[in-house]
Each structure stands twice: as structure tokens, then as C-alpha cells.
Design a protein around this nucleic acid. Structure first.
Length: 451
RNA sequence: GUGGUUGUAGCUCAGUUGGUUAGAGCGCUGGAUUGUGAUUCCAGAGGUCGCCGGUUCGAACCCGGUCUUCCACCCCA
């Protein structure tokens, strides 16, 4: 049979894994630096944990795991006869693959509340699965890198997470725009426009501003049932990029003003310390996940710096006042961010932004020209490895040309050649591949050279 | 989930209105070079033309289905 993998999934070659690990390592380093602790959760959750948490669209994108055994025998005959997929699913599938890391985290916090001290800060770098139709930068299996804190409503965490986003992208050498908004501002806007009960429709429409333009948003709002007055009210907000100019427009909305006040505090705190990237208020930022209640974040590549990069958001997050209550634990606000590792990878690749040393992880490759030299070489790599160096040995004697070619393909920066002369003298031939330069070194000199 | 798009050697791609034996570049293998890769020269291997079915004397090419890729919606990292 012809081998294949499911759509939207990928294999990774060694050099790709090294580059992915570089991204994970940078992110993990910053998570730890900010005091977040690692946790892990299963790839499968009970479907009851996942369904209903991501909106109607999200439920459709959940991967369901078939029950074991003769599951159809236990299913309701009427539902089967009616081909009612929705009803049958609940009878033949009780588990699903996780869709994100936040909801499983909320479940985790509730289950382990007595073992955790609050505020509890955790990070996780794990794959998630979505049955979305794949496109570029959009996969059915992808990694998320999340940092969340629960058990505090302090706005210092909003500021801290902004710094964390900034620090990671600064170290990755990627210029980004970190956009902030607050769901309360959107709620206030909906209230003032008389769309209080249709806030979701409104946010979906204005979120598309940069894609479909002001006229497009106007049309979309009308299609979603907003009257002319409401549309005009919403539209006058869209051109405003300054938080302080939005404030007077929301004066009649207590919730809106609360959102303004929160963002004001976050921006004031962030701006007291230097940041490397643009941090901006954006009233059109909406974000789909409907559990967000306060500040929301979205990070996009700064196309003024990296022109021609076309990529959606590469990180995002927000505050959720009450995600744990659906699992029976009240008054536990949380806030978190998520890095999209796959998209960051694609962008770094496009701008050629990976460091050179992700190309290889071997320090030296040892070649033996005859059986005695090969045995001698095995002893040498044993000592090199025990000294902590990444050393490898070509496993047999063959034409030197062939071994050199292998060294080239392995991206070995140095090659150590051992023949009878070298064994006799203890002076090995060390070739630097990049320059072609070759010198004689003793074992002690080699160790010193490798550091 | 809706509409469209793509698939030919390991990779990137040619392939005439349907016609005999499907090509190129790169890569790969061997040799020139029995102690030197990346550069040069010579030779060679490698293909169920995504898969299944149909039309036809004859299909890489036309038709249907399916899988996959990418794109636009939807939504999102």
C-alpha cells in the first residue's frame, strides 16, 4: 500500500524538528522566567468537557473518538434509523481530542484546586486538534504554547502577559504588533448602539474591518439586522485608534467605561517599562472564543518591518472571568495567552529568521580508514560523548570520499580523520568543513577546541 | 460545512486536437580520484502519470467518484 498521513497533519524532518524546538525553547524559557509552571493534560478529554465551550462552530470542529467495543449495539435504534448524527455521536463517542489548552486547563484547575496555590500560573506546550479544512498556516494538528494564570483579577497580569508576548518575539527577532482591546468596551459599544443582545454579531462584523473595509462592515452589520442608527453609532468608533478618544463616546455605558479604565491601567503599566514591539489599542479586535470577558490580545507580524509576510494572528489571548464555573468552581478569574508555533515557524522561515546553529547539532564526525583506526575512533567518540560533546562515528571503513560526502550531508562542522599514521602519532587530522582547512590535533587539543 | 483549485521520477516542473517506447533540471548510484565533501567530467538507475471506475480501437490528456494540496467563505493559531 501507498503510505500516507491524515489531511492537515505533517511529518517533520530532523532540521525542521530542530527549528521547531528552537521556537519551543525560546517560548519555554520566557514562560519559566515569568514564573509559570509546567503541567500536562491528556490528549483526550471527555466530550462533555469540550462540547459547548467553543460555540456552535467549535463543536463542529471537535474530533470525536469512537468508543471501543460493539458500540452500535448500545446506540438508540430510533436515532440510528433516523441517521441523526448529532444524537448518535453522543451514544457512540464519549471522548474527544482537545481543541485548545485553555478549557482542559480550567477542568484541571477545578479537579486539582486543593493541590494548587492561587494565583496559579501554568504553561503548557502541547498539540491540539481541530477538524478545520486545512490551508496554509492552518492544520488539523498543531501546537499551542499557553501561559495562563487563574485565581486573580489583577491587571498586573494583563501587563505581564503583554511583556511576555513582547519578550518572546523580541528574542525570536520577529517584529510584531500586539493589539489589545477589552470585551467590556465592545459590550459598551453594543449597549450604546442598542445592540446589547447582539454583541457577537456586532463584533464578528467589526472584526473584519481590515479585510473588507468600512463599507463592508456597514453592509455586514446591516445583513446581521442592525438598524441604520445602530450602524452609524458603531461606524463612528471604527476610525478611532486612541483609547482616550473612545472614552467620551462610551460615557453613558458603565460597562464600557470599566473596559476603558482596565485598558488604561494596562497600558499605563506596560508603558512604564520599555518594550520592543508596538503595543496598540484596537477597538476592532474581537476574537471568536466566547469565554473571553475582559482584555483580549492578538499578535500579528508587523508588516511595516517584514513586508510581504501574509499570515493571520500568531498569538492571542485574553481574560476569562469565569471559565471554571462551568466545572463547578466559582469566582476564579483567569487570563492567558497562546503562541501559535506553526505559524511562527512559517513566518520565521519566510523571513529567513532562524539562527544558523539550528542547521545541525553534531560537533564532530569521526572517520576511520581501516579496522584498527575505526576501533580507535570508537574509543575516541566514547570519550568525546562522555565529555558532553555531540560526536558521531561513521560505522565502517569505506572510500574516504563516501564518508566525506556523508559528513557533508550530516552538516557536520568538523571531521576527524583517523588512519594508521594518526593512531601511531596520536595526532589526528581535523578538517573544518566550511573552509576546507585541515590541521593536526591531539585528543586534548580537540577537547579544548570543542569547549 | 459551502464553492473552487492542485496532483506526472526523491524534489521543482515540461508533456501538442486522445496515438506507438512519458521527458528536463536538480538530487541519487557508480566511475574519472584505493587519504578528502561542497566545484568539474563521464555513465547509470529510478514512473501502478494520486486512487477507483467509465468513454474509446487507443487515455497522463475526456467524463464520474474519491483522497490530497492550496484558495475564498466560515472560523481560527
Amino acid at each position: 500500500m501507498k503510505p500516507s498521513i491524515p489531511k492537515g497533519t505533517r511529518d517533520f524532518l530532523p532540521h525542521e524538528v530542530r527549528r521547531r524546538n528552537y521556537i519551543f525553547d525560546v517560548i519555554r524559557k520566557h514562560f519559566r522566567r515569568f514564573g509559570y509552571q509546567p503541567i500536562e493534560t491528556p490528549v483526550m478529554e471527555n466530550l462533555s468537557t469540550l462540547t459547548g465551550k467553543y460555540g456552535e462552530e467549535g463543536d463542529k470542529l471537535l474530533f470525536k473518538v469512537l468508543n471501543n467495543g460493539d458500540f452500535l449495539r448500545k446506540a438508540n435504534e430510533q436515532d440510528l434509523a433516523n441517521r441523526d448524527s448529532n444524537k448518535v455521536v453522543s451514544q457512540i463517542s464519549k471522548r474527544g481530542l482537545r481543541y485548545d489548552l485553555t478549557v482542559p486547563f480550567a477542568r484541571y484547575v477545578v479537579m486539582h484546586q486543593n493541590d494548587l496555590s492561587f494565583p496559579f500560573k501554568r504553561y503548557a506546550i502541547m498539540p491540539v486538534w481541530r477538524a478545520d479544512r486545512p490551508q496554509k498556516g492552518r492544520y488539523q494538528e498543531f501546537y499551542q504554547c499557553d501561559a495562563d494564570v487563574v485565581g486573580s483579577d489583577s491587571l498586573l497580569y494583563e501587563a505581564e502577559l503583554t511583556q511576555l508576548l513582547d519578550g518572546v518575539f523580541a528574542e525570536l527577532g520577529l517584529s510584531v504588533v500586539i493589539r489589545l482591546n477589552n470585551r467590556k468596551i465592545l459590550a459598551g459599544l453594543a449597549e450604546i448602539a442598542g445592540l446589547g443582545d447582539r454583541m457577537m454579531d456586532m463584533t464578528i462584523a467589526i472584526d473584519k474591518l481590515d479585510k473588507i473595509g468600512a463599507d463592508g462592515v456597514r453592509k455586514e452589520l446591516e445583513e446581521r439586522g442592525a438598524n441604520a442608527g445602530a450602524v452609524d453609532t458603531v461606524m463612528q468608533f471604527l476610525g478611532v485608534t486612541d483609547l482616550e478618544k473612545v472614552a467620551p463616546l462610551l460615557a453613558d455605558s458603565p460597562v464600557g467605561m470599566q473596559g476603558i479604565e482596565e485598558l488604561r491601567t494596562v497600558f499605563d503599566t506596560v508603558r512604564q517599562h520599555t518594550v520592543s514591539n508596538r503595543v496598540e489599542f484596537d477597538v476592532t479586535l474581537a476574537r471568536g472564543l466566547n469565554y473571553y470577558t475582559g482584555c483580549i490580545y492578538e499578535v500579528a507580524v508587523d508588516t511595516d518591518v517584514h513586508t510581504d509576510v501574509k499570515m493571520g494572528s500568531i498569538a492571542g489571548g485574553g481574560r476569562y472571568a469565569d471559565l471554571t464555573s462551568i466545572f463547578g468552581m466559582k469566582d476564579t478569574p483567569g487570563v492567558g495567552i497562546s503562541f501559535g508555533a506553526e505559524r511562527i515557524y512559517d513566518v520565521l522561515e519566510e523571513i529567513d529568521g532562524f539562527p544558523a546553529d539550528t542547521a545541525q547539532d553534531l560537533d564532530v564526525l569521526v572517520l576511520g580508514l581501516d579496522e584498527d583506526s575505526l576501533a580507535h575512533g570508537f574509543g575516541l567518540v566514547t570519550r568525546l560523548r562522555r565529555a558532553g560533546h555531540h560526536a558521531d562515528l561513521y560505522p565502517k571503513t569505506t572510500k574516504l570520499q563516501k564518508m566525506m560526502k556523508y559528513a557533508d550531508q550530516r552538516n557536520a562542522p568538523r571531521v576527524l580523520i583517523i588512519g594508521s599514521q594518526e593512531v601511531a602519532s596520536g595526532q589526528y587530522s581535523l578538517k573544518t568543513m566550511a573552509t576546507g582547512e585541515q590541521t593536526k590535533v591531539s585528543e586534548a587539543e580537540l577537547m579544548a577546541l570543542l569547549g
